[in-house]
Structures are given as C-alpha cells and as structure tokens.
Design a protein around this nucleic acid. Sequence first.
DNA 1: GCAATGATTTACT
DNA 2: GTAAATCATTGCC
Length: 196
Amino acid sequence: MKLDRDFYQRDDVVEISRDLLGKVLVTHVGGVITSGIIVETEAYSWKERGCHAYGAKHTPRTSVMFKPGGRAYVYLCYGMHHLFNVVTNREGVADAVLIRALEPLEGIDAMMARRGDKVKFHHLTSGPGKLTRSLGIDRSLNGKLLSDNEIWIEEGKRIPASQVEVSKRIGIDYAGEDALLPWRFTIKGNPWVSKA
DNA sequence: GCAATGATTTACT
DNA sequence: GTAAATCATTGCC
C-alpha cells in the first residue's frame, strides 16, 4: 500500500528520514516494475548548508523542493549520476530526504539488464547513484507525484529503534559544521548500506 | 556568456 | 589508494 501524503507532509524531515527505513521504493519505468527496501537515507533541510535550497533559495533546480511533500526530486550529480530524493513538508518549505541505498526486492533481472552483465549483484543498489540507474530513475521523473504510477513508496516492515544506526551525512564536507549533523540513517548490519 | 564545481562511481596503479 | 569521467546548475562578468 502506497504511503499517503500525510506521511510526507509532516514538518520534521529528520523523523520522516528515519521512518523511511524499511519502506519499499517502487518504480514502473519502461513497462517493468523494480523495487527495493530502503536501508539508508539522509535528511536535508533549507535551514542548513548541505541542502541545495539552503536559505530558502529558489532556483529552477530547487523549485520542486518547495512544493508540498510527496514528490520526487531527481537531479544530476558529478555530470553522470542521478540522485533520488523525496520532497517533504508543506508547500513553501524546502525539505527532502535522499535515498542512498536499497535492498533489491522485485525486478532484479531488469536491474541487472540495466546495469550490464558485468555488475556484481551486491553493487546493484548499494549507493545513491547506483540505485537510480538500477531502478531506471532519471531526470524525467523529477517533480513526479509519488502517488502516481511511475514511482512511489509502499509500506514495508517496521524497523525497531535498536536496529537503526545514526551518523553524519556523506559527501558534504563543504557544508562546514552542518556536515556534522547526525541526519544519516541506516539499518544496522544490513549488507546493502553503502560504504563511506 | 563563461568558468567552477559537485548529496558519486569505477577503473587503474 | 588515487584519479578520471562528465555536464547541469550556479554565480559572476
């Protein structure tokens, strides 16, 4: 069952980030369903420097983050990798959760086909750029409603607090002290969590 | 209009 | 472990 907009439109992006662990991200791209269990997330908010919309800055790229929670924010990083985020909070507040790693569930054959024969199974979705390529996510999905039939998130298993690990976010050293915020959530011991 | 750079991955040494 | 690949977005001229 798809998560409804009340889940996304809460005002604490860090709490939503933690709640997304164990949920299932599903894409329906090119006639194929692919899905995976979310095992790693990071929270981003306009209030801190790690976020593209820091200081509530509107640009063409960040505009989707200001929309009401429950949309996809997809953008290109390092010229070659798509990163997938979930927009949260109410209209006008630019918060989002980056999905960093999944445990493959459905459509594993299709994921392998998208990645090429050489890819190792355990490299399919163990990183933010890898999971978007395996699930067929690209910028054409930017701004899509997660209630539509191309990409959405379903209810999954509940992760007990004892299995949730918190740490600082990765790859945002330029954000100064905001890079130290404990806003990265992973499932403890899960082999699909990306390596730092 | 142009140059700098990044929420990463992969292939090599 | 280190470096190259590669381009949309951004900020400044």
